[in-house]
Nucleic acid binder design. Sequence first.
RNA 1: GGCCCUAUCGUCUAACGGUUAGGACACCACUCUUUCAAGGUGGGAACCCGGGUUCGAUUCCCGGUAGGGUCACCA
Length: 443
Amino acid sequence: MAPQHVVTRFSPSPTGPFHVGSARTALFNYLFAKQQGGKLILRIEDTDSERSKKEYEENIIDGLDWLGIDYDEFYRQSERGAVYRDHIEKLITNGAAYESMEDEDGSDIRLGGPHFRPSVIRFKNSGGIVSFHDEIRGEISFDVTELGDFVIAKNRETPLYHLAVVVDDMLMGVTHIIRGEDGISNTPRQLLIARALGVPEWRYAHIPLILAPDKSKLSKRHGAVAITEYRKQGYLPEALVNFLALIGWSSQGEGEPEREIFSLPELVGRFNLSKVQKSGAMFSADKLKWFNREYMKTLLDDELLNALTARMPEQSPAILAKLLPLIRERITTLADTPTLIGNGGELSFVRNYTKPSRALLKTIEFLPRVRGILEQVSEPDFKAAQIKERLWDFATEKGRGNVLWPLRIALTGLERSPDPFVVAELLGKEETLARIAYAQSLA
RNA sequence: GGCCCUAUCGUCUAACGGUUAGGACACCACUCUUUCAAGGUGGGAACCCGGGUUCGAUUCCCGGUAGGGUCACCA
């Protein structure tokens, strides 16, 4: 048999914002396809014109782009009406489907009355056991008898989900169907249709669902689920991708170094369907934060600065640049920065001087001496390390708590802030001396 | 409820019959710093239960229990 080119597809329905669960499904499809040297198809399943919205389609496309998941082909089911129509005809012609005038209970639906409904197209189901191989779970079988003659199209023009999916997967040359675990129960119906159409079967892989803290399927009511939301919250796409890849999949194994940080290309290299977990996994916001921090550490200074200034155009880039090292070690996401430099924030002292309260200062006894020492430090030497060196012995002699704490409070007025040496450098000699003098006067 | 899937620290996971059951996140302690953050060091913490199979089961099989998914003229 000739080697078959791998084709996977990600097929969201645009009925809501791009969800982290969908994003992970998309990612797994991408990783597998790329690794196999195959292609990924993005197929918008918008046959339900009532619920499908253009804005959601855009949201999905933008989200994929932001995450760096690119695809090779794009389709929209709403534009493929003729294709489905032909296959509905074909199924009716070869006797696999029929136009049904009866309701589930067998009553004729054309007779009018309060329950009048138009006729539908049903699949003629002869029952029996249908089984398939799942790459992750192994053999799965269903008794399809109970499914009855299920509906595959509203009429000769309008396909329903199962039919559209099967026709598309067939025509688009899909080889591997990688989707959420909730698709397992759809599989037998689709397989029945596929057999009637004479499709060689696909390889299936049903990946576990992402669970909320209460172990139910993750949804809106559990907080942020939209990719857009994470973007807004200042997460880096690389961090989100890395995190998502490691929910329900692990590269760890015999001989593998125990590592968790992987770039997208590295993930492509290591991905393996058979190492995908069988059980659902909870979404851990803490772990995501950790990944984000790890990725932020790797940002170069100017990259971080650019990201920050883009988010806070009203903020002076000069101040941002000055505070960068301090911001860097304090933020989890880019969005944390405004609270840090905003009023009352740990780094707010550069722009606003909060008047130190007497109680917070504790003692001002040594402030004059401190000021005296700092006056001796030359302008070019007014750096954290030098300032610390000059002050250290005196502080140690008098008790560091008695010297350093009041100094820091005098300079910032804040209960929490970076250490006094760094603060002094940031403020500059003149401002530092002025603030100390002011604090002294508070007695 | 029927059908289907699943079951290792609180969470994400490693292990593919014999291990002191490993790592990461979170947590706690200590350290650095008399603040905060970051850093460093250390610690507590798991094989759902019951039967088999086997010299030996976390690992294989069966049952139970629990959790999840799905039961549309939605996708």
